[in-house]
Amino acid sequence: MQYTQQCAGTPKKGYASCNALRVTGGTTAFQEEQAAKKGTAPQSVRPNAAADSPTGYGPSDLQSAYGLASAASSNGSGKTIAIVDAYDDPNAESDLAAYRSNYGLSACTSSNGCFSKVAQDGSANLPTADSGWAGEISLDLDMASAICPNCNITLVEANSSSMDDLGTAVNEAVSLGATSVSNSYGGSEDPSDTTYDSEYFNHPGVAITVSAGDSGYGAEYPATSQYVTAVGGTSLSTSSNSRGWTESVWNTSSTEGTGSGCSAYDPKPSWQTDSGCSNRMEADVSAVADPATGVSVYDSYGTSSNWNTYGGTSASSPIIAGVYALAGTPGSSDYPAQYPYNKAGTSALNDVTSGSNGTCSPSYFCTAGTGYDGPTGWGTPEGISAFSAS
């Protein structure tokens, strides 16, 4: 089967959509979609957003929020984070250079060996360019850079957004030596997901992170794969508390917010012990995703402005992939999704205890509380120890 799939919107069966909720000129993708259906102009959430300068969180903000400043300055050399997306972003390398230069990060280019871009078969025969997925790619590359500035980055571009092509790109990323692989896409669950598990996501010794989704309560694949770290989304704000930051479940509306839920098909991994879901429960951990408390991204391909503020669990997945890279190489037989469970309830994670992303039963499937919950998992990073093998 072949379908034409855009970056935003509901994916066709067997295809994935990217999860970025873009704030471009002050609107999110959800608002633009709803306005188009009504034949009206979208309402702006950031009417004064500047087009020529960043307005969202940058690397120092994210490193501060998640206790990563020390690790980010000294760790990551020799580690490779792979970013898996569909289609080509022709400006990926130059846009990444602009982002890193603006924030004083060291250059990460193909000429110095830090950055590489390949097709899903590892070749230079890149797929067709797509402006929607180019925005997603920019977001992913910038967040990996923000968290692990010393890491190498490999962008693997799938030929399409089919699960087979994206999964093939994951396999290629692993074969190229990545110890962290970020996936910012997802779609509805299907009985064939367990087959995809074994074909594309069963990679012990590699931290594979996946966005939990941006449509509110409800499980998505491949976040529900038993072999990956499912990453939920939060709203992140500065605070006068001792941490300096506070977080709650990201929930913009009934149809826009972090995903979570109990898988209909994927079995529960041995390290996940919540009692309300007999199958795989989503999510495991979380990070900032609310476009209203979004991150700055430099994206020049097919956009009217270069600096934009982005949100979505497309931001949180590469953030967590970066944390895994800072934490070191996973054990060769380990599934790193287990690591945060080993530190559950400790100061290594910021427990997110407020907010919800829908209506559900039992309540922890969609409502934050003390300890584990679906929307935010065990919480957000406080340093790297919850993402380490030791």
Rank of each mutant, 00 (worst) to 15 (best):
E189T: 07
G187K: 00
E199M: 05
L176H: 10
D197K: 01
Y185Q: 09
D197W: 04
S188T: 13
S184Q: 01
V174K: 11
T179A: 13
S182N: 15
T195Y: 11
S175R: 13
G187N: 02
S175C: 06
S188L: 04
P191K: 01
E199H: 09
S188I: 04
D197M: 08
G186Q: 07
G186I: 08
A178R: 02
S182L: 11
G205K: 13
F201Y: 14
H203Q: 02
V206M: 03
T179F: 05
Y196H: 02
T195N: 14
S198K: 13
T194D: 07
D197A: 11
E189F: 05
N202A: 15
G186F: 02
V174L: 08
P191N: 03
T179Y: 09
S184G: 06
D193R: 00
S192G: 06
S198Y: 10
V181Q: 05
S180T: 10
A207E: 09
G177F: 10
F201W: 15
S180I: 00
Y200M: 07
E189W: 04
D190S: 14
D197V: 04
D193Q: 13
S182R: 03
S175Q: 11
N183F: 10
D193F: 05
S188Y: 09
V174I: 15
P204G: 10
G205Q: 09
D190I: 04
E199L: 13
P191M: 00
E189P: 01
G177W: 05
L176Y: 08
T194R: 12
S175D: 11
T194M: 12
H203E: 11
Y200R: 13
N202Y: 10
V181M: 07
A178P: 06
G187S: 03
S192N: 14
A178E: 07
Y196V: 00
D193S: 12
T179G: 07
N183C: 15
G187I: 03
T194N: 13
D193I: 02
L176R: 15
F201K: 02
S180M: 04
G205R: 10
Y196A: 08
G205W: 09
Y200I: 11
D197R: 06
H203A: 01
S182P: 09
Y185H: 04
V174E: 08
V174M: 10
A178M: 09
D193C: 13
A178V: 06
